[in-house]
Design a protein around this nucleic acid. Structure first.
Length: 337
DNA sequence: CTTTGTGTTGAC
DNA sequence: TCAACACAAAGG
């Protein structure tokens, strides 16, 4: 891709031989430094007992930002810790981007008073809206947005809804705009089936992608519309499953196979749902102005499989419990108010 | 193939 | 809690 050359931060001190071109393929070891410079060094060389230069370990120059770690290819990762566990926030081209992603995660995990890399702007309306946006989403969901680089887009979308709602003369809070999925007044919005597809082995194999049949893709998920910024990298589709969980998939067209595919995010779905060849995936879109997309799955019908299968699959769809007995090929009806 | 992000370890 | 490092898993 863009062969980024990472430059050195001239940190600290006095005597640094600088300008260390980092992850370059044609890297030639410099004269072995007598003393390992501890900061910003690009490479360290170790001598083995025979005295030859045997191992050359790449040393990445650390980030000046909290929660940001260098990646071998010159990009930057962001991570935060909680309860002895690392939570990965994603990788970013720019160090500052990663630092900002960490800041958002920090505020999400630890509240507005969290220690962050950059100064907090205070008392603007945007600030309040973002705070409300954060507390009205789960940590997992915010992290997901950050990883997908979709956070700002989602935030802006949310702000627009808020402004529109209040423009109608109503006073509407941010949380009302967002809706409360677990609340009692949850709208059982009607939605209709877009299409279904039987899962192929290749959809759950190590290709980590799901092929959307061309006619369905072009009809329901057009790629070249006005709102999505072109790109061969495709776009992001956001779905909700029957449990209310949000799933984001990268959606694009592969020239090599001339097919429309869901890529990034798909393997997580396969893993969590334990999808297998023969299962049925169904896509729905809710009626009304929201046009929320839904994704659902059904276990493959047929009883003669040598696998432990739950005899009854309980699906909670839009607040309605649906029981599906395996062996019946019954479709899941969608919603209903 | 390239890139991501997990496993792991050891500091603070 | 945190980041450094190696490298297996995921992605295209």
């Amino acid at each position: 891709m863009d062969g980024n050359i990472i430059c050195i931060d001239e940190l600290s001190s006095t005597s640094d031989s600088n300008v260390i071109p980092l992850p370059s393929k044609s890297w030639q070891p410099p004269t072995p430094p007598q003393s390992l410079c501890r900061l910003g060094s690009g490479t360290s060389v170790t001598l083995d007992c025979e005295g030859g230069i045997k191992a050359e370990s790449r040393k990445l120059n650390p980030s000046k930002y909290k929660g940001v770690v260098p990646q071998p290819n010159g990009r930057w990762g962001a991570q935060i810790y909680e309860k002895h566990q690392r939570v990965w926030i994603g990788t970013f081209s720019e160090e500052d981007e990663a630092a900002m992603a960490y800041d958002i995660a920090a505020k999400c995990f630890r509240g507005q008073a969290a220690v962050t890399n950059f100064n907090q702007r205070s008392n603007t309306e945007d600030y309040d809206l973002e705070a409300a946006f954060l507390i009205s989403h789960s940590k997992a969901e915010i992290v997901d947005m950050l990883r997908e680089h979709a956070y700002y887009e989602e935030l802006e979308q949310c702000k627009r809804k808020y402004v529109n709602a209040n423009g109608d003369g109503k006073r509407v809070s941010m949380t009302e705009v967002l809706g409360d999925p677990s609340g009692p007044g949850r709208a059982a919005a009607a939605c209709h089936l877009l299409f279904q597809k039987e899962v192929m082995q290749s959809d759950v194999g190590n290709l980590n992608r799901f092929v959307i049949p061309k006619q369905h893709a072009e009809k329901h998920f057009p790629l070249h519309n006005r709102s999505s910024p072109t790109t061969s990298k495709g776009t992001l589709l956001t779905f909700i499953d029957s449990g209310g969980k949000v799933w984001r998939f990268r959606y694009l067209y592969w020239n090599s196979s001339r097919s429309y595919v869901l890529t990034r995010g798909w393997s997580r779905f396969v893993k969590e749902k334990s999808l297998r060849a023969g299962d049925i995936i169904s896509f729905h879109r809710s009626a009304g102005p929201e046009k929320q997309l839904h994704i659902n799955y059904m276990r493959r019908s047929g009883l003669s499989q040598a696998r432990p299968v739950h005899p009854v699959q309980k699906v909670r769809l839009f607040g309605v419990d649906i029981f599906q007995v395996s062996g019946t090929g019954g479709g899941v009806n969608c919603g209903g108010r």
